[in-house]
Write a protein that binds this DNA or RNA. Structure first.
Lengths: 122, 122
DNA sequence: CTTCCTGCTACATTAGGTGTAGCAGATCGT
DNA sequence: ACGATCTGCTACACCTAATGTAGCAGGAAG
């Protein structure tokens, strides 16, 4: 079943692009695939390895979906991002930068919760 | 199993924040939950309804995970985003804007492929 | 004491992902 | 021409994750 903007995503009836996008990205491996290809195009097998070895079944399914959504191409050697895919990749880079800061504050919070379990420390 | 930055995400051995983030966001409903709460805090039942009715089992699991990651709170009435959660929500808003443009170019591409199947159509 | 919210938990069913094996096609060196 | 070695897959049995419905304990209001 090819998900597309204009067609309802799971859990919606409108085909709002953001809903379709959240639905697609919320499947396992999709984000990881975009992330890995963002670091450079590569073959199916290499991509599988970079992702930590998902089953070829599911990897292929994801690649098909992403190609239908115009985010990936499958030309030269192996797979790569299209223009739209690169744009999406930019957002992932932004998320990566954010996540570093997030991890630091989260670590700080935990450390505090451990060091000073005085009030309501569980 | 509580995923956290510092602890390896599925498919990795490093606990790189971006990997943990991609892993968590790549589970069904996580992105949708953040999206819906980004539009305002609400109760468990209301949230479930907004998301299109995922099973309470999985909704509750996701809410727990997101709370442990410091993205959600569960205080006043129902659930809401923390500061970190709101920051992440900003990125989703950016994605939403992007997705509108993406949908238009994608629709254009398809229309062309249908109207002019002259060379290599299909 | 009843009613109606709240946030859940239980449990059987089904959809989704895993892991291993292996195959057909293209490209290489001999 | 033949084997070796890539490529991108497909098949299939197995297991985990999500679904859908039911229902329960706790708190607030009448």
């Amino acid at each position: 079943m090819p998900k597309r903007p204009g067609q309802p995503a799971r859990g919606t009836r409108t085909g709002r692009p953001i809903m379709v996008l959240l639905d697609v990205l919320g499947q396992r491996w999709t984000l990881r695939i975009l992330w890995e290809l963002q670091q450079g195009r590569c073959t199916f097998r290499e991509l599988r390895s970079r992702c930590g070895g998902p089953s070829p079944t599911i990897l292929n399914r994801r690649l098909k979906e992403l190609r239908e959504l115009g985010l990936l191409d499958h030309d030269a050697p192996g797979y790569g991002l299209t223009e739209a895919g690169r744009e999406l990749g930019e957002h992932l880079l932004a998320l990566s930068a954010w996540s570093e800061r997030w991890a630091r504050t989260l670590a700080g919070r935990n450390a505090r919760a451990v060091r000073a379990p005085v009030s309501g420390g569980r």
